[in-house]
């Protein structure tokens, strides 16, 4: 049976995700209340501001925050883009803001600097096939480290993160990172730092639908860590190395 996907609709680019899901022939519904969660098979947390979503889910008479946690604990799939990946993360660098703390990743918010340094690029995402993916990063986060159960699905060159250094506050970590994780999966949770919903390429949403409908291969990352430009040794040698590598 065709699945129904909820899109958390408290703030962010909700309509774009709904459009992608509908383009794949599934039903998308906007979720604002805990009670609506009963009718969905998977949930998308869209792009937006993570501090806003933290406030709107926590400081709320409706128990949507707890309901999403239950949804995760029940093994139901969630896909978080940008804000969604921050909201799902166990750890947010330098911040105690509210989060679901469900996925074993440490994220850095706004890792590339101000909007001037937001960018489009093509990404290798082996799990989606050979064709590169046009990825749009908007003041995007990155995953600095990931636990053992996390499959790394895509990375960007850390040099991109240095574009914004002229703007000031970002630390120079050229010695620490060759690349940053920008897409990952841990069991029922999928995150991307970029926004496939802003493009016509439906492969990421299709991958998520396979997770929802039970068709995705469990070992998605076989080969995914070998995104070509890695200097694997440097990661291994460094104490702050990405544990997933």
């Amino acid at each position: 049976m065709a699945s129904t996907i909820g899109v958390l609709s408290l703030q962010g680019d909700v309509a774009e995700h709904c459009r992608s899901i509908e383009a794949l022939g599934r039903r998308a519904i906007q979720i604002r209340y805990a009670r609506q969660m009963d009718s969905v098979d998977g949930l998308i947390i869209p792009g937006g501001e993570s501090t806003t979503i933290a406030k709107l889910t926590a400081d709320n008479t409706d128990a949507i925050f707890d309901r999403i946690r239950e949804f995760i604990d029940a093994g139901k799939p969630i896909y978080g883009t940008c804000m969604g990946s921050i909201f799902l993360a166990k750890e947010i660098e330098g911040s105690t803001q509210g989060r679901l703390a469900a996925m074993d990743i440490k994220v850095r918010r706004n890792a590339f600097g101000p909007q001037r340094f937001s960018f489009e690029t093509t990404l290798n995402i082996p799990a989606l096939g050979e064709e590169p993916f046009d990825a749009i990063f908007i003041r995007g986060p990155v995953i600095l480290s990931a636990g053992e159960g996390v499959d790394v699905m895509a990375r960007v060159d850390a040099n991109i993160g240095r574009l914004g250094k002229t703007a000031g506050s970002l630390p120079d970590e050229s010695a620490l990172y060759d690349s940053y994780i920008v897409m990952a999966r841990q069991n029922n949770l999928l995150v991307s730092s970029f926004h496939p919903e802003l493009t016509d390429d439906l492969r990421v949403h299709n991958f998520f639908l396979q997770m929802v409908e039970g068709e995705a291969p469990s070992g998605v990352s076989s080969g995914a860590n070998v995104v070509a430009h890695q200097n694997q040794q440097r990661h291994t040698a460094n104490p702050m190395a990405l544990s997933a590598v």
Binding site: S9, L10, Q11, G12, D13, V14, A15, E16, G47, G48, E49, T52, C82, M83, Q115, R116, F117, S118, F119, E120, T121, T122, I136, I138, R139, V156, D157, N159, I160, L163, H195, L198, A228, H229
Partner: peptide, 28 residues
Amino acid sequence: EQKEKKGGDIRTGSEKVKKALPAMLKGG
């Protein structure tokens, strides 16, 4: 070779990138 391909493929300030920021502010 692949690194060069990637590094040469970063587009900032494109119309798509500029329009995307306001999209993230929706409902806010």
